[in-house]
Amino acid sequence: MKNVPLASVDHVDRAVLPIGTDYPPGHLLDWHEHRRAQFLYGATGVMVVDTADGTWTVPPERAVLIPAATRHRVRMLGVSTRSLYVEPAAVPWWPGTCVVVDVPPLLRELLLAAVDFEAEYSLSGREGSIADLLLHEIAARAPLPFHVGIPASADLAALCRAYLADPDAGVTNAEWAARTASSERAFTRRFRAETGDSPAVWRARARLLAAVPMLRTASVTAVSGRLGYASPAAFTAAFTRAFGTPPSRFTASGRGPR
């Protein structure tokens, strides 16, 4: 199925409903939730998924697992998606929070085949076998670290979301503490308690996540300068340490057939 609203087929008695959807550039799917779990794969472009607990950046050739009944929003940056909507009872192993995973060639081809199914596809033969194999392949995926947590406190969450939207390497702990009317020491202690990281470590990781969508249209050199790194080499080293792959892999020139 392609460009079909989930609500129109959610009632269909299939554990896995594959739907492909094309979105205009910069499209925002505002806050919503699904009864089913969702496997959201960006066949093109970059996705940024927000929940109350964190932000997940989904580079090209990756996907995000979204638990059932999880309120979320998705920013689509040049994305054509291939989604699976899955009955929760069929996937008791589904993670309890969002997880970004790799999409190797077999899984990608299964997804591309599945979105051509009708809603009431045959459970026997090829189509049912593909649906079953999709779940086996997804279960075998390992989490990737394209994520930062968002604090539960409203004031800290507002600081973090604003920073993700416009990361500034010059921001200091003292500035953030002043915005929350607390001492730098008290602010740092509270921030670490809610995120597990110091504010400086959190901001460094947030800048690296923000680099992923920037790399769609800018060079490694341009992005490293925008994010306040001393050199492209320093940015490349930090990015590779955090995500296990160099930033050049996500530039227009670095993408291609896998």
Score class of each variant (00 low, 15 high):
residue 1 M to F: 03
residue 4 V to T: 14
residue 6 L to R: 06
residue 10 D to P: 00
residue 10 D to T: 02
residue 11 H to M: 05
residue 15 A to Y: 05
residue 15 A to W: 04
residue 21 T to D: 02
residue 22 D to L: 06
residue 24 P to C: 00
residue 28 L to M: 12
residue 29 L to T: 05
residue 35 R to C: 06
residue 37 A to K: 11
residue 42 G to Y: 07
residue 47 M to I: 01
residue 47 M to D: 02
residue 48 V to F: 00
residue 48 V to S: 12
residue 49 V to W: 00
residue 50 D to I: 00
residue 52 A to F: 10
residue 52 A to H: 13
residue 53 D to S: 14
residue 54 G to F: 08
residue 56 W to L: 03
residue 56 W to D: 05
residue 60 P to D: 11
residue 64 V to D: 08
residue 64 V to Y: 05
residue 66 I to V: 15
residue 68 A to S: 15
residue 71 R to P: 03
residue 71 R to S: 13
residue 73 R to K: 15
residue 73 R to N: 12
residue 77 L to W: 02
residue 78 G to H: 04
residue 78 G to S: 04
residue 86 V to Q: 04
residue 90 A to C: 01
residue 90 A to Y: 04
residue 94 W to D: 11
residue 97 T to Q: 12
residue 98 C to G: 14
residue 103 V to F: 04
residue 105 P to M: 11
residue 106 L to V: 10
residue 107 L to D: 07
residue 107 L to G: 06
residue 108 R to S: 12
residue 109 E to N: 09
residue 111 L to W: 07
residue 112 L to V: 06
residue 112 L to T: 12
residue 112 L to Y: 06
residue 115 V to A: 05
residue 116 D to C: 01
residue 123 L to T: 14
residue 124 S to T: 14
residue 124 S to E: 15
residue 125 G to Q: 09
residue 126 R to S: 09
residue 129 S to Y: 09
residue 131 A to Y: 10
residue 133 L to T: 13
residue 135 L to P: 06
residue 137 E to T: 03
residue 142 A to E: 15
residue 142 A to R: 15
residue 148 V to S: 08
residue 151 P to N: 05
residue 152 A to F: 10
residue 153 S to D: 10
residue 158 A to Y: 03
residue 160 C to H: 02
residue 162 A to R: 14
residue 163 Y to L: 12
residue 168 D to I: 03
residue 175 E to F: 02
residue 178 A to C: 07
residue 180 T to K: 01
residue 183 S to Q: 03
residue 186 A to H: 01
residue 188 T to F: 04
residue 189 R to D: 01
residue 190 R to H: 06
residue 190 R to V: 02
residue 192 R to L: 13
residue 194 E to Q: 15
residue 197 D to Y: 11
residue 199 P to Q: 11
residue 204 A to H: 07
residue 204 A to I: 00
residue 207 R to F: 00
residue 210 A to I: 03
residue 212 V to I: 14
residue 213 P to N: 06
residue 218 A to Y: 10
residue 223 V to R: 02
residue 228 G to T: 04
residue 228 G to D: 09
residue 232 P to T: 03
residue 237 A to E: 15
residue 242 A to L: 08
residue 252 A to S: 10
residue 254 G to W: 09
residue 256 G to M: 05
residue 257 P to Y: 11
residue 258 R to H: 08
